[in-house]
Design a protein around this nucleic acid. Structure first.
Ligand SMILES: [Mn+2]
Ligand SMILES: [Mn+2]
Ligand SMILES: [Mn+2]
Ligand SMILES: [Mn+2]
Lengths: 219, 219
DNA sequence: AATATTGTTTAGACAAATCTAAATAATTTA
DNA sequence: TAAATTATTTAGATTTGTCTAAACAATATT
């Protein structure tokens, strides 16, 4: 099936929003893609015709098996290009999403697989998200929790859930990246802020909002 | 100026066809882009509006200074990606054009310049074509002639003008690539075929058509 | 010079992707 | 449950890039 760039972006967005079996709503998809609900309805009809989604008027959207397979291929390309940009071209993690958003649309299995191999077949991207392999399989991520819910004291950063430039740049400024080890020094109940301590640095206090978006596991 | 992919492909094709100051004809451009003359006329009006080309009805098309600059940026991206695919991902020279045709449309100066640097700022692409630098300047290619016109006996292959998969695959099969050294053993006047000899290989005879598309200079 | 051929443009149409505004369905509130 | 609100769809338009068929211009042939 030959998909346009717009169609690919829709399929990927549906995949992103579809947690488990919950149908994706028209409005949510419009918001995610920065477009209008009317446009989503139009596209939903096209993707249904192409059998990439199940869709009934007013009932929301879910990917078919075929659609899920397609989505995983796009996600694979996106995350591999992000790795390339960070690992080989020394881009910072907040710069790569936008570029990968375009590079992901070059559809060549050979290119994708060669790129993966060249990068050492990475299993996570620069934001800690898992990379599907050539068959669409993702390594089951090791158990992780958001920093605000962590109970162990010594932790390592495994992923970031909000990948906005604003948060990623903030984390850069504070020296927090994937693999960073830290200890929880204190929880402040007033605003649920959390004081953390990293090696070779004074402790710092981060807001609940930041903590919620940092994923960690016990070291 | 924000150009669509279609517009970029037109600008690049005009650049390719515009040798010196000869205006590019509607039909030639349609053939090059595998489209119809009527479509070219439509696009010519748009590119004229955007001041990328000079165009008067029935008088053909030439790039403006702005258009030339745009074309050189696209050519730069195209050739850098070709280098990447060959040098880093081990693609063969006949596979890369099609992929670069898509990758060239990712418009990011930062990406382009980082890629160039990563590749060691190459000055020629895998087909021997020169790569414009960040300012659009190309190294003046060292003097070269087509193999059928060469008079020196000991030669080195510097470029290939016909870059069809068919010719490139033929040259692969015969062990002829950029940098290959060869001697002219004989010219056969009957069909203008040329017998050549490369190191560590028996001599072989190639047709005039092949010879015309191999660029060489004295070693 | 008249005619034929070739090259180019125009007119009118279509598909893809989007939009706004209006209509309709589903859900929540009173 | 009736009214109000929210979510979604439809109708109709627009832009981009393309096409075919017909008209027109430039060039070549007799
Ligand atoms: Mn994208
Ligand atoms: Mn990512
Ligand atoms: Mn292209
Ligand atoms: Mn090339």
């Amino acid at each position: 099936m030959n998909l346009s760039i717009a169609e690919e972006n829709y399929v990927k967005a549906i995949y992103k929003l579809q947690e488990g079996d919950t149908a994706v709503t028209t409005n949510a998809l419009a918001y995610e893609l920065d477009t209008k609900p009317a446009s989503v309805t139009d596209m939903a009809k096209k993707l249904k015709d192409k059998q990439l989604i199940d869709y009934e008027k007013y009932k929301g959207i879910t990917l078919t098996a075929e659609g899920r397979k397609t989505a995983l291929q796009i996600v694979r390309r996106h995350r591999l290009w992000e790795c390339f940009l960070v690992d080989k071209l020394a881009f910072s993690w907040e710069e790569v999403h936008e570029l990968a958003e375009e590079l992901e649309h070059v559809r060549s299995e050979k290119l994708t697989n060669r790129l993966s191999e060249y990068l050492g077949n990475p299993t996570v991207d620069p934001h800690g998200d898992p990379i599907p392999d050539a068959h669409g399989r993702m390594a089951k991520p090791r158990p992780q929790t958001s920093l605000d819910q962590a109970n162990a004291k010594r932790l390592v950063v495994t992923a970031v859930t909000d990948q906005s430039v604003a948060l990623l740049a903030f984390l850069n400024a504070k020296g927090i990246r994937l693999g960073t080890q830290l200890e929880i020094v204190a929880h402040y109940e007033y605003d649920n802020s959390i004081e953390i301590k990293m090696k070779h640095a004074p402790s710092l206090t981060i807001s609940e909002q930041v903590a919620k978006n940092i994923m960690v596991r016990p070291v």
